[in-house]
């Protein structure tokens, strides 16, 4: 029964993730911590498995559309993987209240950013397909590698700390500062999440912070949910889904704050 509940939860997180582009980890970690009484560090490690599953499934689709810049991704992964591995180590020495506070702050920040954009998750960029119906990517050369690597280090660090993908940092940096087309920046960021999450997940696993009996049903649910979500995406008004996501994130942020203020006793 317990596994079935986790599977269903992963399924909905997977659908929401595929429809909005926000990784399931953002929702799964606080839900595991608040409603399943799992210490936040194990909640982060466990949902990292679901994050890797989502990234593998979705970036294989991007790759087949040839919108991923593997060379750029691999270069920036030097920084994201390093940052993620380092903070994954440091998390072992963090107090759970600090982690819950950081997570609540991250949820609030993400919600406000989405609302400030009027419910749009990212700036849309329309690239007209050519006569064969294929997407044409304008030629480009990534600029300012040092800045890109520095931002990736921060994104990776946040990923190892909170079990999130770090797309909200990497995509704008690649798009605005490195002059990479938005479509390529999005696909490449997605591509990098798997390796970044794996760099920290390996450290979490070795520390015993991945609960297998929870990670397995969650990952199975997330996998099915993201497959369905990807099929639903073209047919659904994502705006309402985004507001639903923001509502859930705000609820979880508030719940985390209450949890913190009550001394972590209320589950």
């Amino acid at each position: 029964m317990f596994s079935a509940l986790l599977l269903v939860m992963g399924f909905f997180a997977g659908i929401l993730g595929a429809l909005t582009g926000i990784g399931g980890g953002v929702l799964l970690t606080p839900i595991l911590a608040l409603h399943f009484g799992i210490p936040i560090r194990q909640a982060i490690g466990t949902s990292l498995v679901a994050v890797i599953t989502t990234s593998a499934a979705s970036s294989s689709v991007h790759l087949q559309r040839h919108t991923t810049d593997i060379r750029l991704g691999m270069t920036l992964e030097l920084a994201t993987a390093f940052g993620a591995a380092v903070t994954a180590y440091l998390v072992g020495y963090f107090n759970r209240n600090v982690l819950e506070g950081l997570f609540a702050g991250f949820l609030l920040y993400s919600s406000i950013t989405i609302l400030a954009r009027g419910g749009k998750l990212k700036d849309e960029e329309t690239v007209p397909p050519n006569t064969n119906g294929e997407t044409v990517i304008p030629p480009y050369e990534p600029q300012r590698y040092p800045l890109g690597l520095a931002a990736s280090l921060v994104a990776g660090g946040l990923s190892g700390l909170l079990g999130i993908g770090g797309g909200p940092i990497k995509v704008p940096v690649m798009f605005i500062f490195m002059k990479v087309p938005l479509m390529v920046a999005t696909a490449t960021s997605n591509f990098m999440i798997g390796v970044t999450a794996a760099a920290s997940a390996i450290v979490y696993y070795r520390r015993g912070d991945i609960l297998v009996e929870i990670a397995a049903p969650l990952a199975v649910g997330v996998f099915l949910g993201s497959l369905l979500g990807a099929r639903l995406a073209p047919r659904i008004q994502t705006k309402y889904v985004v507001y639903l996501l923001v509502a859930i994130m705000l609820y979880l942020a508030g719940h985390l704050c209450v949890h913190l203020l009550s001394g972590g006793s209320a589950a």
């Binding site: 691999m74 992964e77 993987a81 390093f82 591995a85 180590y89 794996a198 760099a199 390996i202 070795r206």
Partner: peptide, 19 residues
């Protein structure tokens, strides 16, 4: 570069010590 990323990943697996 790929080898560098691989090294970082494997170091995590080898030195997976923590409390």
């Amino acid at each position: 570069i790929s080898l560098g990323v691989l090294t970082i990943l494997l170091l995590g697996a080898v030195f997976g010590i923590g409390e």
